[in-house]
């Protein structure tokens, strides 16, 4: 194992944070902090790079890409720059590189995004989704179920110990709709998800993942974080990542936060039930 670690250190996984200075609404940086932390726990060497406006992106140089959310003004500001890198990013996606995009970043991975002011922005077209503006913002705590994450054996299904459950918080005015190759990232158990209508949340294709779970999505979902790191590791080194033993996984604090989120939602649901009309 030590030997393996040393080998991995020679060629670390490279994480590219796109437009961290422009797309950074609602604690998006938490996802980078989480990837860094979990990489440390899993014994994976990870280097972080920030790439922003005016830099020609070399998709070959990175293993994981992250794009956060922004306000309409910032999304418009980066659009031209992003489209210049369209080919590179599409190629990275086709090669099975990991791309995680949150909220506004997720919308930009789609084909087009209708803004609140009526104009339509071209997206990267990596995910078969399109985004429309809607009336009223969809705001609140969320719980989703992502089938591709294995349920952890240590706890019962449909409990905070079930690692398929993703906990988050959403805050978006736009609605996103899936078609074609795009598969939902998860099923909505609580909250609105993509559009508040079809019970889907986020989208994925190959190793490209988009979600409305804004800001600090990964910290409370270490199984998702680990999964992304494993995918990137496998693609880069051509073999599966050996996970540490269960007692070395260091998920105590994450699990406490998940358990508390679960209790909070249970209390909210209880109030709704006894609240009469709603």
């Amino acid at each position: 194992m030590e030997m393996l670690n040393r080998l991995q250190d020679l060629q670390p996984l490279k994480l590219c944070h796109l437009y961290p200075d422009l797309l950074n609404l609602y604690g998006d940086i938490g996802n980078i902090i989480a990837l860094t932390q979990r990489a440390r726990v899993l014994g994976v060497s990870l280097e972080r790079y920030a790439v922003s406006m005016g830099t020609v992106l070399d998709p070959e140089a990175y293993d994981i890409f992250f794009i956060g959310g922004g306000q309409d003004a910032q999304q418009t500001a980066i659009q031209g720059d992003l489209l210049k890198n369209k080919q590179g990013l599409c190629k990275a996606a086709q090669q099975g590189k990991v791309i995680l995009a949150v909220c506004g970043g997720y919308q930009l991975l789609g084909e087009k995004v209708a803004l609140a002011n009526g104009s339509v922005m071209q997206g990267l077209g990596i995910l078969d989704v399109h985004t429309e503006s809607g009336r009223g913002r969809l705001i609140g705590d969320t719980v989703y179920q992502a089938g591709f994450l294995q349920p952890e054996l240590t706890g019962p299904a449909d409990s905070p110990a079930d690692s398929r459950l993703l906990f988050g918080f959403e805050n978006h005015g736009s609605r996103t709709y899936l078609k074609g190759r795009a598969r939902p990232l998860a099923k909505v158990l609580y909250g609105y998800g993509n559009n508040g209508e079809d019970g889907t949340e986020g989208a994925c294709w190959e190793q490209v993942y988009g979600t409305y779970s804004h800001g600090s999505f990964l910290p409370k979902n270490p199984a998702m974080t680990d999964y992304l790191l494993q995918q990137a590791y496998q693609r880069r080194y051509g073999r599966k990542l050996d996970l540490p033993s269960a007692d070395q996984m260091d998920t105590q604090y994450e699990n406490q936060a998940r358990a508390q989120a679960w209790q909070r939602l249970a209390a909210q649901l209880g109030r709704h039930k006894t609240g009469g009309q709603t």
Binding site: G27, I33, F169, N171, H214, S216
Partner: peptide, 12 residues
Amino acid sequence: VDISWIWDAPLE
């Protein structure tokens, strides 16, 4: 209601 901002605090 949203506490995502705690991740923006550069405590590191």
